[in-house]
């Protein structure tokens, strides 16, 4: 077992464990912070899989903005009767069963299909190579995506404004 594999396994354990804590924590803000740990660990995994650029984007976008957004949302919607708000609902046993079934099903499929395959890391996903791919082969989807982002931006503003007008 190489060092990279060892580090990957450690990161994987951290990611899954903090994800579980995030999804079961009784404190809303703790959930968000545990998610930061998870996302960071996943970013580390990206790095180990030769996807440097994606790893940095993950850290910048997710850890940097999404989680901040979430924490703001949690603070804005703090409820006076919110003691129970962080808890899980009565649906949790069914949800747990479904989650386990989904994970096992996916894992079993992966094991059945890709056992013994190795990642050799022949092409490093540097900012240069990704940027080259993005602006040659993927330029059209990239532009469309910008349109989607713009629409989401406008939509978010409209939804927020119409609520405050009332």
């Amino acid at each position: 077992m190489t060092l990279a594999e060892l580090v990957f396994l450690v990161l994987a354990v951290i990611a899954v464990g903090s994800a579980l804590l995030s999804m079961t924590s009784g404190q809303l803000v703790h959930s968000a912070l545990w998610l930061v740990v998870t996302l960071g660990a996943v970013a580390g995994c990206f790095l180990l899989m030769t996807a440097e650029f994606v790893a940095w984007v993950q850290v910048l976008v997710y850890v940097g903005s999404v989680v901040v957004l979430v924490i703001f949302a949690l603070m804005l919607t703090r409820q006076s009767t919110g003691e129970k708000s962080a808890e899980v609902t009565g649906n949790r046993w069914l949800a747990a069963i479904l989650g386990v079934v989904a994970a096992i099903g996916l894992g079993a499929t992966m094991i059945a299909g890709f056992r013994g395959e190795e990642i050799e890391g022949r092409r490093i996903g540097t900012a240069g190579s990704i940027g080259h791919a993005l602006f040659t082969d993927w330029v059209l989807p990239f532009e469309i995506l910008s349109g989607v982002l713009l629409a989401a931006l406008v939509g978010a503003i409209v939804i927020s404004r119409s609520g405050s007008d009332r």
Binding site: T89, N91, L94, A95, L98, V101, A102, G105
Partner: peptide
């Protein structure tokens, strides 16, 4: 909403199986 989502998830799992 959560119940709806649960039912959908169950359906997806069953269909996949």
């Amino acid at each position: 909403v959560q119940r709806y989502a649960t039912v959908i998830a169950i359906g997806v799992v069953l269909l996949t199986v």
